[in-house]
């Protein structure tokens, strides 16, 4: 072996780790840039009126995004009302009947649904709900988001309940507590933080979704509280404003982006807090 080859090997080793460090940090440069631009352009727009007023017609100064904030919250509430009961009970089922044929197929289905592009979920919500009801609606948008949340909730519920020790179930059953009560009052409370984490993750996943809302919730320049009518949402508003030719709308879109990013990051942060506890 030549002595020089060791030196060459060490140089190669050093070069490689430098490359790893460089590429790792290069990949978060876009994140910093995005946050920088959103904060810089967004903060200039955000004030009390922006958060509490309706959009003004083109050409008028000011105006806010309250209809989109309310709409986003409405959509999330509808999505949770649909997906949480179904998702949690299906997660319980998977944990209870681990090796059954149905459980295996449901697990497979959850994986597949997880991977369905969100735009396709929009098409499905359109044909299943918008067409029968005859109108774009908050309901159809909420259902589309619910379909996207379901796999997240099911998986985290199953994973959490798997970690609840079997001895707790035995302790409860040995007291003569019925199976259903054991699940509801002993097993679920023991895994509650994990289940909540799953729901929050689901909300974080759909809060910024636009594609499934394009032809379901559709967007609405006015305030709407009726779940059977079109409703605006922050991502929809950003899409419309950002692709418009008007300068004023662009700055409103930056403001809305800041609100949306803060909301999504807050969800992720809360999720982390709950998990750590």
């Amino acid at each position: 072996m030549k002595a020089s080859s060791t030196g060459y090997r060490i140089i190669k080793d050093k070069l490689f780790i430098s490359g790893v460090v460089l590429f790792s940090f290069l990949s978060i440069v876009p994140l910093l840039l995005i946050l920088f631009y959103i904060i810089k352009n967004g903060i200039a727009v955000i004030n009390w009126d922006f958060l509490t007023q309706l959009p003004r017609p083109m050409g008028e100064e000011g105006g806010g995004i309250i209809n989109a904030i309310v709409g986003t919250l409405m959509l999330i509430v509808i999505a949770c009302l649909v997906s949480v009961p179904v998702g949690v009970t299906a997660g319980i089922y998977l944990n209870e009947y681990r090796t059954g044929k149905i459980a295996e197929s449901v697990r497979m289905a959850v994986e597949v649904i997880m991977g369905i592009p969100s735009i396709i979920i929009g098409i499905i919500a359109y044909t299943w709900i918008v067409i029968p009801l005859g109108s774009f609606s908050a309901l159809s948008g909420g259902v589309a988001l619910a379909i996207m949340m379901l796999p997240v909730i099911i998986k985290s519920t199953e994973e959490t309940l798997k970690l609840v020790p079997n001895t707790l179930r035995e302790a409860s059953l040995a007291l003569g507590v019925p199976y259903s009560t054991t699940i509801i009052k002993v097993i679920i409370p023991a895994g509650l933080s994990g289940i909540i984490t799953g729901i929050l993750l689901g909300v974080a996943r759909v809060a910024g979704e636009t594609a499934p809302l394009l032809f379901t919730a559709f967007g609405n320049p006015f305030m709407n509280y009726n779940i059977l009518e079109p409703v605006n949402s922050l991502p929809l508003l950003i899409f419309v404003y950002a692709t418009s030719p008007y300068q004023e709308w662009h700055s409103l879109a930056w403001g809305a982006s800041l609100v949306l990013v803060v909301f999504v990051l807050l969800m992720n942060f809360i999720t982390k807090l709950v998990t750590r506890r």
Binding site: P165, T167, L168, E170, A171, S172, A174, L175, V186, P189, A190, L192
Partner: peptide, 13 residues
């Protein structure tokens, strides 16, 4: 008929 198990298992919640 009460039962006590190998490992103590009080309800954690």
């Amino acid at each position: 008929i009460g039962m006590v198990f190998q490992k103590p298992n009080p309800f954690p919640t």
